[in-house]
Simulated assay, not measured.
Amino acid sequence: MKMSLSLLAIVINLTACAEVQPWERGNLAKPQMALDPYPVQSELRGHSYGAREAAGAGNTGSGGGCGCY
């Protein structure tokens, strides 16, 4: 039973694979297709959040955390 479920999962995953043609790759390279379409804005939000919360996440350093905007 466990083996057949594993085999079924592998077969389903393999059917989802598709070869991307060279002329289709331009669509995948658009900024809207990125995992984070606005990386600069996300970085600034993370920096201001870390400064407000005084929760350094490595790159935010230490800040005073009044919690206000």
Results as ranks from 00 to 15, higher is better:
Ser48Pro: 00
Lys30Gly: 10
Tyr49Gly: 01
Val11Cys: 08
Pro37Tyr: 10
Leu35Ala: 14
Glu19Cys: 12
Ile12Thr: 12
Met1Phe: 02
Met1Arg: 07
Gly46Met: 09
Gly63Asp: 13
Val11Tyr: 04
His47Leu: 14
Gly63His: 13
Gly50Phe: 04
Leu28Val: 05
Ile12Asp: 00
Gln41His: 05
Ala51Tyr: 03
Leu35Val: 01
Asn13Glu: 05
Arg52Thr: 07
Val40Ile: 12
Ala51Trp: 01
Val40Thr: 08
Glu24Lys: 11
Ser62Phe: 03
Gly61Lys: 03
Arg52Lys: 13
Ser6Phe: 13
Met3Gln: 15
Gly56Arg: 04
Glu53Tyr: 05
Met3Leu: 15
Gln21Ser: 14
Arg52Phe: 01
Arg25Trp: 04
Val11Leu: 12
Gly64Ala: 03
Cys66Arg: 02
Asn13Pro: 06
Tyr38Glu: 07
Glu24Trp: 10
Pro39Val: 09
Ala34Asn: 15
Leu7Val: 09
Cys68Leu: 09
Glu43Leu: 14
Gly65Lys: 06
Tyr38Gly: 02
Pro31Arg: 08
Ala54Cys: 11
Met33Gly: 06
Tyr49Val: 05
Thr60Ile: 07
Lys2Tyr: 00
Gln21Gly: 07
Leu28Cys: 09
Ala54Glu: 07
Ile10Asp: 08
Leu7Gly: 04
Leu5Gln: 14
Leu8Glu: 02
Leu28Pro: 01
